[in-house]
Design a binder for these strands. Sequence first.
DNA 1: AATAATGGTTCAAATAATGAACCAACCACC
DNA 2: GGTGGTTGGTTCATTATTTGAACCATTATT
Lengths: 256, 256
Amino acid sequence: MGTVGKAISLLELFSVDEPELGLSDLARRSGFDKATTRRLLVALTSHGFVEQDAGTRHYRLGAGLSRLARIREARFPFLQTAVPLVRDLAASTAETVHLSEFGVDRLVTVHVEHPARANRVNVDIGQLLPLHSTASGIAYLAFARDETVKACLAGSLDAFTAHTLIEPAAISRSMGEARERGYSICDQGYEEGVISVAAAIRAADGFALGTIAVAAPKARTTAAAIAERGLAVMEAAREISMRLNGENLQTLRRQA
Amino acid sequence: MGTVGKAISLLELFSVDEPELGLSDLARRSGFDKATTRRLLVALTSHGFVEQDAGTRHYRLGAGLSRLARIREARFPFLQTAVPLVRDLAASTAETVHLSEFGVDRLVTVHVEHPARANRVNVDIGQLLPLHSTASGIAYLAFARDETVKACLAGSLDAFTAHTLIEPAAISRSMGEARERGYSICDQGYEEGVISVAAAIRAADGFALGTIAVAAPKARTTAAAIAERGLAVMEAAREISMRLNGENLQTLRRQA
DNA sequence: AATAATGGTTCAAATAATGAACCAACCACC
DNA sequence: GGTGGTTGGTTCATTATTTGAACCATTATT
C-alpha cells in the first residue's frame, strides 16, 4: 500500500462509536509503526484532516473533511435532497430508514433515521454495507453498471449469516426480482433477525448511485408490511431520483 | 512536502466553482508531474476520496469524504446545530450570513445563506478566511488560545485592501474591542465595499471554535444597522454555543 | 493530414518513508 | 515513594517508495 493509502486507512479507523483515538491505539489498530503513524497524523493534522485534542492529546477527524464534503455536496446535493424524504419514510413506517451512497465497492451509509422505540434495528452513520448480502446492495446491483456487478460477483462473497446468499446465480436471481418488483428484499442476509427492503436511487443516466432502505426486526414484520414498505421505499427512491435529476430521468438501458 | 500532503493538496484544488478537473489540469495546478498526479489520484480513488466520471474521465471529490465528514458531524454536530440559527439570522437581516469553523490556521466556511437579492456579498462554501482581516477572524481571535493568536500575529499578514489592518498592535486592539463588545466589525478589511460583523461560537472550555457572520455591501449599510446586526449575530453565536455545550458553557478565562 | 491537446504508462534514479531504540511524563498499585 | 506499564513523542541509518522524462494511444482542432 502506498503512503496515501496508509494515511487514509488511519482516517478510516475513526467511527461514530470511537470518534477519538490515541496514538498508540491508532498504531496498534492500523498495524503501522508508532513513528509512522505519528508522521502520518502530523501530515493529516497540518492539512486539517485530523485534529488533536489539546487536553487528552487524542486525535479526531478534522474540519478539512467537512469542508471538502460540503464542496462535494454543493455540486451534488444528495444529502440535502434525500434527507427530507428519509424523514418522511421513517415517520410513516416507524422503523429504521437509512440512506447510502456507492463508494469504491461498497455502500456508504450517509444518513439514518431511527424510530423512537427500544426494539429497533440500529445502523450507524458511516457504516459500510456489502453489495451481495444487504437489501440496499441488491437494490444497487439491480441498476448498477455491468462492470460493477461483475466485479462484485467475481470477488469472494462472505456469508454473514446462515441465510446469506453467496452463489452468484442466486444473487443474480435476487437482483432480477428486485429490478422487476422495483425494490429488493433481504431476509437476514446480513444480520440474524433483521429484514429489510430497499430501492435504488438513480442518476440521470439511469444507473444507481445510492439506495434508501427500511430495516426492521423480523419478529414483528408481516408479509403485508414488507409489501407496503417496499412500495413506500420505491416511491421515495423515485422521488429522490427525480429531484436530483430535474424530472428528466432517462429510462434505464438495462431493463429486465 | 510529504506524499500525503501532496495527495491532500490535490483534493484542495476542487472547489464549488470547479468541482470537476481533468488529469492534466490537476497536474498543472498542483505543480506535480502528470505521472505523480495520476498515481495520487489512483490512490485517492481506491479509497473513495475521489471519483472519476465514466464519460469525461474527469475527477471529482468522492463519497468517502462525505462518510468521514458525517462521522465527524455525528460526534460534534456543529452544522446540525448551527444551520437553523444561520437561517433565522439570514431571514431577519436579509443579508449574507456565513458560518465557519477553525481549521489549522484559517477559518473554513461550512455553511452560507444568501439573501434573495442581486446586490449581495457572495461567499462560497469551502472558502477559507484569513484570521487577521475578516470580521470572523477577529471574532475568533478574540476568544482563541494565546498560542493561536501568537502564531497568527507572528506570520506575514497580507493586506487585501487599503483598509486591511496588518500591524499586530492594531489587530490586537480590534480583538480587544470585539471581546468587550461581544462582536467584531470589519470594514473592507478583506474586500473593498464589504462590511461585516461576526461573533465567536465557543466550545465548553470557553475558547472559540468557529464564528457566525453577516456580510453586506457597505453602500447600503448604516451605523445603526451594524449595531443591530452585531447584537443579532452575538445572540445567534451565544445560542449556538449553548446548544452545543448543553447550557454549561464556562465563562472564559481570558476576559477583557 | 498535421498539430496539439488529452489520459495513461514505464523504469532507472532520486528521494522520502520506515522502525528499533530511545526519552519523558503520567498512572496505578503495592 | 518506588516500580512497572502505560502513554505521546523523537531520532537516524537503512530501506523501499516516489519521482519524472520519455513514451504510447485517443481525441479534438486546424
